[in-house]
Amino acid sequence: MNKREIGNQGEIMAASFLEENGIQILERNYRNRFGEIDIVGRDGNILLFIEVKYRKDESFGYPLEAVGYFKQQKIRKMARHYLNEKHFHAHTVRFDCIGIIGNDIEWVKGAFY
């Protein structure tokens, strides 16, 4: 499997996990000129932008460590574009991260602002 296929499997696991926890998935792999948002979801009246990082083990580091400052800035920019494109102007927004190691899933709500 290539990196994209492995990442896609992690996103499928994350989407299922989120749905099991009451999150409505609006989009997966939303792309715009700034990049890609793994999952866009809704938790009640809160719009979620969710970054998913998958590792088969910890030999390449903890997955959530890969969501640093510059990645966060990129996700914020993509989220602003999404909100304008979809005409979501008065919604509360939250940025979450999901880290997966093997089959273990960690969901960090409000991982950054």
Score class of each variant (00 low, 15 high):
98 I>G: 02
23 I>V: 15
75 I>H: 03
7 G>V: 08
21 N>V: 07
88 F>Q: 12
108 V>M: 04
109 K>S: 03
15 A>E: 09
104 D>I: 11
107 W>D: 02
103 N>M: 05
89 H>A: 05
106 E>F: 09
72 Q>I: 14
35 G>K: 06
4 R>M: 03
29 N>L: 04
89 H>L: 12
42 R>L: 15
64 L>Q: 14
32 N>R: 04
34 F>Y: 12
24 Q>D: 11
20 E>M: 13
56 K>E: 15
53 K>V: 07
10 G>K: 07
18 L>Y: 03
93 V>P: 00
70 F>S: 09
54 Y>G: 01
79 A>F: 07
90 A>D: 12
90 A>P: 00
108 V>H: 10
27 E>H: 11
3 K>T: 11
22 G>E: 10
31 R>T: 14
23 I>Y: 04
50 I>H: 00
107 W>G: 01
65 E>S: 12
107 W>M: 06
86 K>R: 10
63 P>N: 02
102 G>W: 05
57 D>T: 15
36 E>V: 11
69 Y>H: 13
21 N>W: 02
80 R>H: 09
61 G>K: 00
40 V>G: 05
7 G>T: 09
46 I>W: 04
76 R>Y: 05
31 R>E: 12
33 R>N: 13
51 E>P: 01
24 Q>W: 07
7 G>Y: 00
39 I>Y: 00
48 L>M: 13
55 R>Q: 15
15 A>Q: 06
26 L>N: 02
50 I>Q: 00
89 H>N: 08
91 H>M: 09
49 F>K: 13
2 N>P: 05
113 Y>I: 12
53 K>C: 01
20 E>F: 03
54 Y>H: 08
12 I>C: 02
71 K>N: 06
24 Q>P: 02
73 Q>C: 11
24 Q>A: 05
72 Q>W: 02
17 F>E: 07
65 E>D: 09
30 Y>G: 05
48 L>T: 12
34 F>A: 07
59 S>R: 12
36 E>D: 07
63 P>W: 02
23 I>S: 01
80 R>A: 06
73 Q>N: 14
19 E>C: 04
96 D>I: 08
108 V>D: 04
77 K>Q: 08
66 A>H: 10
49 F>V: 10
95 F>D: 01
11 E>D: 14
9 Q>I: 06
64 L>C: 08
81 H>E: 15
1 M>C: 09
55 R>L: 00
108 V>Q: 15
95 F>V: 01
70 F>W: 09
82 Y>C: 11
95 F>L: 06
73 Q>L: 14
38 D>M: 03
103 N>Q: 11
69 Y>G: 04
16 S>Y: 07
78 M>A: 10
48 L>E: 12
8 N>D: 06
9 Q>C: 03
95 F>Y: 15
52 V>S: 00
82 Y>T: 15
64 L>G: 02
21 N>I: 02
62 Y>C: 03
34 F>K: 10
21 N>L: 01
